[in-house]
């Protein structure tokens, strides 16, 4: 199987110029296969967000390579990097990251408008994804008029509207209650399976992680264990995750 993401010996050092540099990532190797749903777990401060930010091109690494679809992303110039982000990636973060000065429709349409897509096509795509995420009623509202779960769904809609091949999530259920969280995870695993979109998600929540096919455990800037679901049911996998986390805490 082809890999969407290939990470080699990635390190991230913060405060390099100060007298107290801090190694947040200490040589990470990681692959995500095409169409795979991968979660990353680990205690607070273990480097999860740092890893995701580098993969998502939001922050340059100190050393190591990141290849997405065989392209070394940190060799791209700013313009191409932005284009790559716009066309290939989708982001769902813990804070909903919506733009308050745009209504829901315009928020969802943003990635498409940046790609110079025709108006009619934009409308079609937005309505389609809004329908899938049960947002049709909310399209004319502004973000401040929405509930937390609705906002997160809008964020998801915006991440999906341009049909990216890869979605990044940093605690995408972090601000949701358990019902909303379950709904969001169901939706993510559905688009993962139906549309063959790869997902890489950081979470501290075992329940959310159990929707993935593979979980990497990060500790002190290194991957210390990997758990694979294989053909187990989600419930069984959830139990495995909890056991593994329990072992960590001992």
């Amino acid at each position: 199987m082809k890999n969407v993401i290939e990470v080699n010996n990635l390190t991230q050092v913060y405060g390099q110029k100060t007298n107290k540099p801090y190694k947040a990532l200490k040589g990470i190797d990681l692959q995500v296969a095409n169409g795979e749903f991968v979660a990353i777990m680990g205690p607070s401060g273990s480097g999860k967000s740092s890893l995701l930010n580098v993969l998502a091109t939001l922050q340059a690494p100190t050393s190591g390579t990141v290849k997405v679809n065989n392209q070394d992303i940190w060799q791209l110039n700013d313009k191409n990097l932005a284009k790559f982000r716009g066309e290939t990636l989708g982001f769902i973060f813990q804070e909903y990251n919506l733009i308050e000065s745009l209504n829901v429709f315009d928020n969802i349409a943003l990635p498409l408008s940046l790609q110079k897509i025709k108006k009619a096509q934009i409308k079609k795509a937005v309505h389609l994804v809004a329908k899938q995420l049960n947002l049709t009623e909310q399209l004319n509202k502004f973000p401040t008029e929405l509930s937390g779960g609705q906002k997160q769904r809008v964020a998801a809609a915006r991440a999906l509207v341009h049909q990216p091949s890869l979605i990044f999530g940093d605690e995408p259920t972090g601000a949701l209650d358990s019902n909303n969280a379950r709904e969001m995870m169901n939706y993510l695993s559905a688009i993962n399976m139906e549309n063959n979109i790869s997902i890489l998600m950081v979470t501290h929540d075992a329940f959310s992680a159990s929707f993935a096919q593979k979980i990497h455990f990060l500790s002190d800037g290194q991957i210390v264990q990997t758990l694979e679901r294989h053909n187990a049911s989600r419930e069984d996998f959830y139990r495995d995750v909890l056991t593994t986390l329990g072992n960590f805490n001992e």
């Binding site: 932005a82 284009k83 982000r85 990636l89 982001f91 919506l98 733009i99 940046l114 915006r158």
Partner: peptide, 16 residues
């Protein structure tokens, strides 16, 4: 600051 960060995540380049 937040809004422009979102836009850059979505694929707007710096000069835009």
């Amino acid at each position: 600051k937040k809004r422009y960060r979102i836009l850059s995540m979505i694929g707007a380049n710096t000069s835009l």
